[in-house]
Design a protein around this nucleic acid. Structure first.
Lengths: 201, 201
DNA sequence: AAAGATCTACCTACTTAATGGTAGACAACA
DNA sequence: TGTTGTCTACCATTAAGTAGGTAGATCTTT
């Protein structure tokens, strides 16, 4: 890139334009929806001209796909950590739920929920990508819950796959609603109810 | 209104333009989001000119507010029925959840979720209206759960207000995700897990 | 009951601003 | 020298909203 690096630019600010675009675009989409932000908004947020964005992301769909990929990768890393050093089943689900809590605190929804809302209007490619995002989380949760059942920390009898869907639904819904109410405490309450219900009595 | 009533027009088709606009607009918003539909789309769906929409709803915000009002009224009526002739606490929550199931089956999300996603970009008025929508449901659920606890059908010990938030979160999230997967069955599964967890063991 | 006035619901034609996207020039690098 | 990243300047399209008008219904007055 050609931007002059002014002396007061920190290491953080020096990160390349593409990354900066992804960061700001994610904030925009999570804050106002995919159809609710424009290249003009993003250009202003990053301090670059609108046309320059097209150099990095030719079309808005390309940008959306890159956004989902980066978001999914970040989650995947977090899930790996939780699985590696997380405690028992319910503890892992709680750690997973805390990932969503950050959104409530920052006033940002889930990127994939923002895209999912657009439904039929969403380009096929993005719909596939977000479906894969949810499918990944579903698979991770199912494994975590199954292991938890085997270890006795998660209540037996329930189908882990069904339980996994229920967990994501509750967290996605709580993020959606508690962001509106700007109420991280209420989110914590719902997370507590959710995790408690998972525990072996 | 001035539209000629052709002989083959059924009673249904004869309903006035304003109602027709509200119906089609609701489908559009629930299908693709508030920012994702235009007056041009709506005009085409209803078979009217774009300018004529402004006669009924001067601005898009007016239309959005009318949409939320009609949606909330429909829900309020349904909630009253469930409360009147619904069975025990968990049975009422299940009946409430079935209201969401319709959306999954038709491929339509929750109107208020579609609006909530837009977050900061959403006109203040609409944000207030959808917050009121959720607050109403929260109050209704809290009362239903409290009564259920008193009657012994809902498990004791849990705070009805927290439980109410948890119920809406789960249903909103399940609608969001299972619409994407076009899976009413999975929604039913989540609803079953939710209601089962509410029951007195 | 006739006459005029007003209202309702729609129309065509338009404006202004914003949208996503393109073409081509230019400077800094490697 | 060619590649990369950015720019200015543009394009076609679409957005919400407005201006002004018309035909028919309804209300008001005599």
């Amino acid at each position: 890139m050609t931007r002059s690096r002014e002396p007061d630019e920190t290491v953080q600010a020096m990160r390349d334009t593409r990354t900066e675009l992804l960061m700001q675009a994610e904030t925009l989409v999570r804050g106002r929806g995919y159809a609710g932000f424009s290249y003009a908004d993003l250009a202003e947020a990053v301090g670059i001209r609108k046309a320059s964005i097209h150099h990095h992301f030719p079309t808005k769909v390309d940008l959306g796909a890159a956004l989902v990929a980066a978001y999914a990768a970040r989650y995947a890393a977090a899930l790996a950590v939780i699985r590696a050093d997380g405690p028992d089943g319910p503890g892992r689900v709680e750690a997973y739920g805390k990932l969503y809590l950050g959104g409530v605190e920052q006033g940002l929804g889930c990127l994939c929920a923002a895209l999912a809302i657009e439904g039929e209007a969403l380009p096929e490619r993005l719909r596939r990508d977000i479906a894969a995002f949810f499918a990944d989380h579903l698979a991770w949760l199912e494994a975590v819950l199954r292991e938890g059942q085997a270890a006795g920390s998660v209540r037996a009898g329930a189908d882990p796959a069904a339980l996994a869907r229920y967990v994501i639904a509750t967290l996605e819904g709580a993020l959606l609603m508690e962001r509106l109410f700007a109420s991280p405490d209420a989110f914590r309450g719902t997370l507590a109810v959710l995790v408690d219900g998972l525990r072996t009595p």
